[in-house]
């Protein structure tokens, strides 16, 4: 079975979406965990959902990164529990130090809410193994701060260690400036830690996981989690 926990911060607004999506795709119930709790129950995967935790005060994800629950999330991640941060969750992962870099204001200064195309650069992680390498998928983004920034040395390291998981691309899979919605360095849409078990992703797989929503490309990320857990069992 898959034991997934979704952390709920004040201002999270995609928490129930990912719960519904995960339950629908995997068939297993998902536990919601309040940010003020001290401990996450034993989980096969922890989700930091999208939204506007703490109203994006100070910097996106900065307050949430210091929530009581995050101490345990960081400890469990370091001990090997897979963690996915989606959109605001990605910002929280960066602010908490589990992932390098930071998500800055979009270069256009506009909130971007539309589908984007993504090239799967690493199809071997806990969260992406149901993809083919270089596969092009379509997922929605909805953010004002998705402009990934890190210094050149960090970016080179991410590339060298195969930790850039997805990049914005065009329909042919070309990673071009025109396909970059938000100004992210090297078109980065998602990165992982050294183990491939902590993933930060700006696009929202839970918003496009079945055809009734207009597409099902997000489903493979959820299926990857289940497959990874079943393989390890």
């Amino acid at each position: 079975m898959l034991r997934a926990s979704v952390i709920v911060f004040p201002g999270s607004n995609c928490d129930r979406d990912i719960k519904v999506a995960l339950e629908n795709v995997t068939g297993f119930p998902v536990t919601m965990v309040w940010h003020g709790d001290a401990n996450v129950p034993v989980s096969d995967v922890i989700v930091l959902p999208g939204g506007f935790s703490y109203g994006d005060y100070l910097r996106c994800g900065a307050m949430a990164a210091h929530s009581p629950i995050m101490r345990d999330v960081v400890a469990k991640a370091k001990a090997g529990t897979p963690v996915i941060g989606i959109c605001n969750g990605f910002q929280v992962l960066c602010e908490s130090g589990l992932l390098p870099g930071v998500l800055m204001r979009n270069a256009s200064l506009k909130f971007i809410c539309r589908d984007v195309l993504l090239k799967v650069d690493n199809a071997e992680t806990f969260f992406t193994k149901c993809h083919l390498k270089d596969q092009v998928i379509r997922l929605p983004v909805a953010h004002a701060e998705g402009n990934y920034f890190a210094d050149t040395a960090t970016l080179d390291q991410l590339v060298d260690e195969n930790r850039v998981v997805m990049r914005y691309c065009d329909a042919e899979g070309n990673v071009t400036e025109a396909a970059n919605p938000n100004g992210s360095q090297r078109n980065i849409a998602g990165i992982c830690d050294k183990t491939g078990r902590v993933l930060g992703l700006m696009p929202h797989p839970e918003r496009l996981f079945e055809l009734a929503l207009g597409g099902s490309d997000g489903r493979r990320i959820l299926e990857s989690m289940l497959l990874s857990v079943l393989e390890a069992a």
Partner: peptide
Amino acid sequence: KDLLANTVI
């Protein structure tokens, strides 16, 4: 260091 500034940027 811990909260007010993100020293990456």
